[in-house]
Design a protein around this nucleic acid. Structure first.
Lengths: 199, 199
DNA sequence: TTAAAATCTTGACAGTGTCAAGATTACAAT
DNA sequence: ATTGTAATCTTGACACTGTCAAGATTTTAA
């Protein structure tokens, strides 16, 4: 597959993949353009043929992450067709699982693009799509009279924010062990969503 | 106040202050030990007399941030004595305001210490204290029969997580403008807490 | 008074992001 | 098929970073 030609052939994806691996094994602090290049077997400036700068690579990795998350949400939704309540709970659980399994990618997804977000259309598109998935479930819940009606997008922000916040706090070690010994993160998130639903 | 003696006199605090300023003016990406040292008027390795490494300085800055946040929460609580509902809502609003006014400090507070958290006792202490403040309000709400009784700490995580999550998403630009044009972040957070209370 | 500890400096090193110039290859137009 | 142009990749360089080692200066305590 990879003969050592001058042109790599699929370097862009190889760099993203290498970045994801470094992220998973060594964490954000150890992610550098040069190391990614080394891992892909190219010179230290080769990445600049595919990414304008480090931010750009990070944006690509984040995009990857959102694509995987979005996919996972999709199958969660499909696995409970016509049951918005289960869809919502399952989605929250899938979200939690993704975050726990991909801590550093999750962190980078929500802490990089920043104000330059708009410069990466692929990132904007998939992250918006992900949010729309949540909004759609909330809307379905409203139509099924499971949660109160109103602005679905605002409600989605609240519910999504709740799930996201609990996970974020947990990943950053802000939730004490005493609590996490009593209830797993999955249980806490599930309880939170169920409470939000009952209305 | 500052005569240029060999010994600075209060370098540790000066470094933290310089760090906070750089953070506010230039953002996380521009925060470096050397720049902090320069700003404090000392050599590039002087910080190592007070901080073992960069992480350690960041921990100190985070600690500073938590102290300010905790103080703000305190006055929010005191301004509505014997009214836990108002205390809770006001606390959420204070939390929101702090985050919006100190975006980069807020980010660093919840994205640095990581697993080495325990190595910084001052940080652990104040961040725990902050959480306990929230738990106490929740407990007060329970006693006042405003929210359902149960494990106060878990409930606090859920409510705090909700507030934190909405803010985090907003700060990272993950909440669309369409939504934030309809409702300000303060309004969304307030609505979220009020919903959580009604039970 | 003086020995030890704390604080700060200079100098060095490896690692980083990024630019500039040039080499190699792929590809499209002729 | 040839050729010129664009894409891709390399080498080399630069400034900036975190961090260590050695030593200078000052404070503190014995």
């Amino acid at each position: 597959m990879k003969s050592k030609t001058y042109h790599h052939g699929d370097l862009k994806n190889a760099l993203i993949k290498a970045g994801v691996e470094i992220l998973a094994k060594e964490g954000i602090g150890k992610l550098s353009l040069r190391k990614v290049a080394l891992k892909a077997g190219v010179s230290h400036t080769a990445p600049y043929s595919h990414f304008s700068d480090k931010q750009s690579l990070i944006a690509a990795i984040s995009t990857e992450g959102f694509q995987r998350l979005s996919k996972a949400l999709d199958s969660a939704i499909k696995s409970h067709a016509n049951n918005p309540k289960k869809q919502l709970i399952k989605s929250a659980q899938v979200y939690t699982e993704f975050a726990l399994r991909n801590k550093d990618i999750f962190k980078i997804m929500f802490s990089s693009a920043l104000e330059k977000e708009k410069e990466y259309p692929a990132f904007v598109e998939i992250s918006q799509k992900t949010f729309i998935q949540v909004v759609d479930i909330v809307r379905a819940c409203q139509e099924a009279n499971i949660i109160k009606s109103g602005e679905a997008d605002v409600l989605a922000v609240i519910i999504w924010g709740q799930v996201h916040g609990i996970i974020a706090l947990a990943i950053e070690g802000q939730i004490s062990h005493t609590i996490l010994e009593k209830k797993s993160l999955q249980e806490i998130v599930t309880q939170a969503v169920e409470q939000a639903i009952k209305k």
